[in-house]
Amino acid sequence: MTDEMNVKQSGETGLEAFQGTIEEFLLSADVGVVYGEPIQHEDTIIIPTAEVLSALGFGLGSGSGTSGEQEADKPSQGSGFGGGGGGKVLSRPVAVVVASPEGVRVEPVIDITKIALAALTAFGFMAGMMARMSSHKRAFPEIEE
């Protein structure tokens, strides 16, 4: 009985902890996360913007059991509680809002590395596909009758 209560209590504590984590996780949906603090440079104010992707998952479980095999009068009891989780937050700069006496404009931030990597992957895939097509043609020569 005490074991079951302990398991229940630890389960509730774990759930509360995860509930707190979930609440903090949901704060990543706030506007302030995407738009950074304004940076002033002379007459110009720069506001950096970024996209934020956060993912979180967890699982909890508990169990208890009795075994009457060892001692019939006093059955052994056992219980346990376990949980685990993981998460990831990704952030990538998207643009910069520049506010100057001339006006406000949005300057994009272009991630050259990401584009180059994607281009290389696409080029590699297409080259591989073409090589496979030409080798496929050579691999099955037509049988002369």
Binding site: V33, V34, E51, L53, A55, G57, G59, G87
Partner: peptide, 17 residues
């Protein structure tokens, strides 16, 4: 949000000023 409040995903991106 995953069923059972077991996690989720938030994708927040700038729209306009």
């Amino acid at each position: 949000q995953l069923p059972g409040n077991h996690g989720g995903l938030v994708w927040n991106r700038p729209r306009a000023v």
